[in-house]
Amino acid sequence: YTAFGDLEVFLHGLGLEHMTDLLKERDITLRHLLTMREDEFTKNGITSKDQQKILAALKELQ
């Protein structure tokens, strides 16, 4: 049995499950992801397509 964390649930909701391992390897938490700047997305290997999905979701949360 494995409990999913906030990061996994957030990514799954956006259809971005493939990013879970990448972000965990880089010790990026959901809190960090929510406050990242555009250059940090790129530096951490997050594609512009995935970045757009994340940023759109963040706008909806605000």
Rank of each mutant, 00 (worst) to 15 (best):
K49C: 11
F41R: 05
R37F: 00
D39W: 06
Q52H: 10
L7R: 02
H18R: 05
K53R: 10
L23S: 03
G5Y: 08
L58Q: 15
H18G: 07
K49Y: 08
L34F: 10
T47S: 14
N44M: 15
D50H: 04
E60D: 12
T35V: 06
L34K: 12
T47Y: 07
G45R: 04
G15N: 07
E40N: 02
H12D: 11
L7M: 13
T35A: 09
Q52D: 08
L22E: 10
I28L: 07
D6E: 13
F4Q: 15
I54D: 07
H18E: 08
L14Q: 09
G15H: 06
R37C: 09
D50Y: 04
I54T: 05
T2M: 07
E17M: 07
E17F: 04
F10D: 05
F10V: 06
V9K: 15
K24P: 02
K49A: 13
M36C: 03
D21L: 07
K24Y: 12
F10C: 04
M19I: 14
M19F: 05
M36V: 00
L30N: 02
I46P: 04
E25R: 15
M36T: 00
L23C: 11
Y1M: 13
R37P: 10
L14T: 09
Q62D: 08
K53N: 04
T20K: 13
K59V: 09
L34Q: 14
E60I: 13
A57Q: 09
K59T: 12
T47D: 13
T20V: 13
V9M: 13
R37L: 05
H18A: 07
M36W: 12
F4E: 15
T29M: 02
L61A: 14
F41V: 04
Y1F: 09
L33Y: 00
V9Q: 15
T35H: 04
E8C: 04
L7T: 06
F4M: 15
D50M: 01
K24A: 07
A3R: 14
L33Q: 01
D27G: 15
A3M: 09
L55I: 10
Q52N: 05
Y1G: 12
F4Y: 09
V9I: 11
Q51W: 04
T42P: 09
E60R: 13
E17V: 08
Q51N: 05
N44D: 06
H18Y: 10
A57Y: 08
D21Q: 11
L14S: 12
L23R: 01
F10K: 04
T29K: 07
D6F: 00
D50G: 01
A57F: 04
